[in-house]
């Protein structure tokens, strides 16, 4: 057991944070700091890379090394940070907008390259910070401030996207399942290659209110009811599956990460000198 406490990873003076009451972001941040403490990682050895949005504010409260970039590009920045110094533990904290909407291209390519970093995607099915507009994960026919009558677009399954792209470790959980959340983050960080933890997280201010879930508690109860452990989910019929979503470790692969492969392919070329 590590002697470290989660508080070590927090800028305690910056709290209380800016998130709404009952927002899942605080719960994910709590689990992230707890995971870092249990992994006994020094704050100086961890770089938390954030994008823009509610969850993109997470770095404001962290005492790790941090990079707060532009909207959607967290994985591209993180790729450079990791390759610039492979000894660092690099974790990107992105919302559904950052990860798979504006940043969707970087997401699939970071997964395809299998860059050795961790993506913690807080999926609340909408853009909270800009006022509750729909994103690329908003389910079909959901009401948002840019789809008052319902969205005409189906949403992405973030984990399936990562699986198709080639990520090494893919897990999903919710902010209700806090113990699993912490453990999955720990496993994602220690698993070599591109690791994804998708966290279904309630936006209590916008998405829930517009879509028949008026309170924090009703949203958490919904998460509790809809989330089915992967083994059980696999046993369900396709019709049944449609009513639920799977949680737990969905994919675990051991493909070599980009940097390892790059060094292997280019090994032996270091001996060449400077051209005169």
């Amino acid at each position: 057991m590590s002697a470290r406490l989660y508080q070590e990873y927090l800028e305690n003076g910056k709290l209380p944070h800016m998130w709404c009451p009952g927002c899942g972001d605080g719960i994910i941040l709590r689990a992230y700091t707890e995971a870092l403490a249990e992994l006994d990682l020094a704050p100086k050895d961890v770089v938390s890379v954030t994008g823009i949005g509610c969850w993109g504010k997470a770095d404001d409260y962290l005492s790790t090394q941090a990079f707060h970039g532009t909207h959607g590009r967290a994985l591209a920045f993180a790729t450079g940070i990791k390759l610039g110094n492979p000894d660092l533990t690099v974790v990107t904290l992105m919302g559904d907008g950052d990860a798979v909407t504006i940043g969707g291209n970087h997401f699939i390519h970071a997964a395809r390259r299998n860059i050795d970093l961790t993506a913690i995607v807080a999926n609340n099915y909408n853009y909270g910070m800009t006022g509750g507009q729909y994103s690329a994960t908003t389910p079909l026919d959901s009401k948002t401030t840019t789809s008052r009558k319902g969205t005409a677009e189906p949403g992405f399954d973030v984990c399936l996207l990562a699986e198709a792209a080639g990520a090494n470790f893919i897990a999903r959980t919710t902010t209700y399942h806090v113990g699993a959340l912490k453990n999955l983050i720990k496993e994602a960080i220690t698993h070599k290659g591109f690791s994804l933890v998708e966290v279904i997280s309630p936006c209590t201010t916008y998405f829930g209110r517009f879509n028949g879930q008026p309170s924090t508690l009703s949203m958490f109860n919904l998460l509790k009811d809809k989330a089915i452990p992967i083994q059980k989910y696999r046993e369900m019929s396709v019709q049944e599956q449609e009513k639920y979503f799977a949680i737990g470790t969905l994919i675990k692969r051991e493909r070599p990460d980009f940097y390892t492969t790059y060094r292997r392919i280019n090994s032996g070329s270091e001996t060449a000198g400077r051209k005169e």
Partner: peptide, 16 residues
Amino acid sequence: EDEIGSIATIIGASAA
């Protein structure tokens, strides 16, 4: 994958 990612990744590497 594109030029947006290109400049982002070199900013990251420089920060590292």
